[in-house]
Design a protein around this nucleic acid. Sequence first.
DNA 1: CATGTATATACGTCTTAGTGTATATTGGAA
DNA 2: TTCCAATATACACTAAGACGTATATACATG
Lengths: 108, 108
Amino acid sequence: MDFNTFTALAEPNRFQIIELLLKGPRPVNEISRLLKFDQPKTSKHLRILADAGVVEVKPMAQKRVYALSPKPFKDINQWIESYRQIWENNFDRLDTLLEGMQEAHDQK
Amino acid sequence: MDFNTFTALAEPNRFQIIELLLKGPRPVNEISRLLKFDQPKTSKHLRILADAGVVEVKPMAQKRVYALSPKPFKDINQWIESYRQIWENNFDRLDTLLEGMQEAHDQK
DNA sequence: CATGTATATACGTCTTAGTGTATATTGGAA
DNA sequence: TTCCAATATACACTAAGACGTATATACATG
């Protein structure tokens, strides 16, 4: 799991952008207008999202249309999925807890 | 969706802690030892994780055993799930793209 | 090629967050 | 109560990142 994805999501402004782009691709000026970000701010966060592989760009004339990339969503989904049995079980694995205590004891 | 969860996950050291705790609850000294973090560093990141609701503490004598909380996993799962149809479809919604362009045009 | 529109980047500033060291707190045992 | 083990916190320092302003680049059109 690549936590650049999480880094990208962990910033409020970027999260807003992502939630907006979930409705569909948008050019920069529209993202700016709808989220009330000035243009450089929008571009900079889009750059970070693009570097993290969260969004992709399609040039359309002078405009650059940004769209979400499915990969990070699939990554997160797979990560969550791979541990599903554990967290769906509410982590109440008392046995592993005791095992942990045992290791700590051995260390002394 | 609460991106405090993402903030908690987005830091490499904390992510390591989470991956360790996925194997089962652990007391602080064991987390320190296994991840080669000094003790204050471990405690501080655990504090952040606890504040974000990602981990829970159970005092056991002098030791404090940390365990993952299922809630953030369920939250992330639900978030991903709620948009599954969109990202599984690879976001290729050209119609919404055109709709976006239209809005931009209306603005002028 | 000159101009306007759309977007990206450079730069200085400020804030946030992580780190290491030292110290405080908590609980058990002698 | 005194001592030790385990953990938490305070503080000063540093680095990363976000912001606003100014400027550069890209493309279309006349």
